[in-house]
Design a protein around this nucleic acid. Structure first.
Length: 411
RNA sequence: GGAAGAAUGGCAGAGCUGGUUUAAUGCACUAGUCUUGAAAACUAGCGUACGUUUACGCGUACCGGGGGUUCGAAUCCCUCUUCUUCCGCCA
């Protein structure tokens, strides 16, 4: 564990917490045993008192009652220590991120990410406009209007831009369904338990929009409600893998972002995303990860966009993930790579919080593995479609998308 | 938003005037007997978590969540959540 966490930049001063956790857990166990023994005494005595009352032996019953007060007092001290240990344990465990997979490279920033699969053709050279200019030119995208209605980072799509968005949603959902995923329409607001189970809380507390009056969070990703469908469940081994997909808007505060990263559609507070989610047996999860990578890759090929796949280094890896591959798409006018998908294996990190288990053939209960990936995130796909497929006559829609848009060019 | 009622094991459903309930019973499920095979019948088993034990097992907690009263709570009290019915509002 310590070696794995070192990839996230955890030095010995931080991994010390693991030893503390083990020691506090020992205390917890001890207090549990002691408290159980006291409670057992009370149970035995209570039964005796009941019998004595029935046989009319009131005095002796009153005698026994005296002793119970002492037992209770003793139990109280055990119980308070038990509760304290449990509280400390929970607080400490929440500070420990997932242990990176063996293949995760060391490193602190995105510069240390490994290019897992590079774009093997030459990158397109476009002597054209960035998407924010194209959006205005064809009247499909309006940032000013979004500022007026809501604020920065909430763009308005209109006309063919709006239609393109709807086309992409339907295209991605159809592709997921064809690959065997069950389509889900989840709630867009979730409660605290749900956000905690998939690991957004406490890690991403400041990044989610929060409705104080009702104590609910706006989704940062469909992963949250959809993975939580099976929270607390024990599923049959025969039902695995569970495959689900869903389209939702995603809301992210993106506190602390600035500069060219947030220009145009590059980083917005509300965007649409189609997510694919799987629950698998532990021994199959890395094979499943490959399968999901392949699914996402096929989408980008069908959209005729230049892409590359990165294996995230320890420092860039999400808090909850054991292994993550990012897909980046090339925005030709900005000459920038933009992340459009993140495909991760969480192993048991989420299922442990979810209490999502399966019963194997011998009847034993085991934690399942959970995985998810974007297939795909819309806003940046639109960036790439506009910038890469622009011509002097207009923006060409890829063939795979035309049945969904109903037009083959934006002009 | 207002009023009344309800929440029990995979499902149905007793218990709810506090102490042989270690939660009855039925269905479903699993194994066995019987049968050429199946069905039926019969027999047995059948929840979760934590702790403990080499192991068989044992202890504790859990009857929507949390708290309280009591020697003892599924049962009494408080509170929250959800559901049902009625009223109000409304796509």
């Amino acid at each position: 564990m310590k070696k794995g966490l070192a990839k996230r930049g955890w030095d010995t001063s931080k991994t010390e917490v693991l030893d503390q956790i083990i020691s506090i857990d020992d205390t917890r166990k001890k207090m549990q045993t002691l408290s159980d023994a006291e409670l057992a005494k009370i149970n035995t005595l209570s039964t005796q008192i009941g019998d004595l009352f029935k046989s009319g032996n009131r005095d002796e019953a009153e005698n026994l009652k005296q002793g119970i007060a002492d037992i209770k007092a003793t139990n109280e001290t055990y119980l308070s220590q038990l509760k304290e240990a449990e509280a400390q344990l929970e607080a400490m465990l929440l500070t420990v991120p997932n242990i990176p997979h063996l293949s995760v490279p060391s490193g602190n920033t995105d510069a240390d990410n490994e290019v897992y699969k590079d774009w093997d053709k030459t990158l397109p050279v476009v002597d054209g406009k960035p998407h924010w200019d194209l959006g205005t030119q064809y009247n499909i995208l309006d940032f000013e209007l979004g500022n007026k209605i809501t604020g920065a980072g909430f763009p308005v799509f209109r006309g063919k831009g709006s239609r393109l968005q709807r086309a992409l949603i339907n295209f991605f959902l159809d592709e997921s369904t064809r690959a065997g995923y069950e389509e889900i329409v989840p709630p867009l607001l979730v409660n605290e338990s749900t956000a905690r189970a998939t690991g957004q809380l406490p890690d991403k507390d400041g990044q989610m929009y929060y409705c104080e009056r009702d104590d609910l969070y706006l989704l940062p990703t469909a992963e949250v409600p959809i993975t939580n469908i099976y929270r607390g469940d024990i599923v049959d081994e025969a039902d695995l893998p569970l495959k689900m997909t869903g389209y939702t808007p995603c809301f992210r505060r993106e506190a602390g972002s600035y500069g060219s990263d947030v220009k145009g559609l590059n980083r917005v507070h509300q965007f649409d995303k189609i997510e694919i989610i799987q629950v698998t047996k532990p021994e199959h999860s890395y094979q499943t990860l490959e399968e999901m990578l392949n699914h996402v890759e096929q989408l980008l090929i069908k959209l005729e966009l230049p892409y590359r796949i990165l294996r995230l280094c320890g420092g860039d890896l999400g808090y909850t993930s054991a292994l993550t591959f990012d897909f980046e798409v090339y925005a030709a006018a900005q000459q920038k790579w933009l992340e459009v998908s993140s495909v991760s294996n969480f192993e048991t990190f989420q299922s442990n919080r979810l209490k999502l288990r399966y019963k194997d053939n011998s009847g034993k209960k085991q934690l399942a593995h959970t995985l998810n990936g974007s297939a795909l995130a819309l806003a940046r796909i639109i960036v790439a479609l506009l910038e890469n497929h622009q011509t002097p006559e207009g923006i060409i829609i890829p063939a795979a998308l035309r049945p969904y848009t109903g037009f083959d060019m934006i002009n």
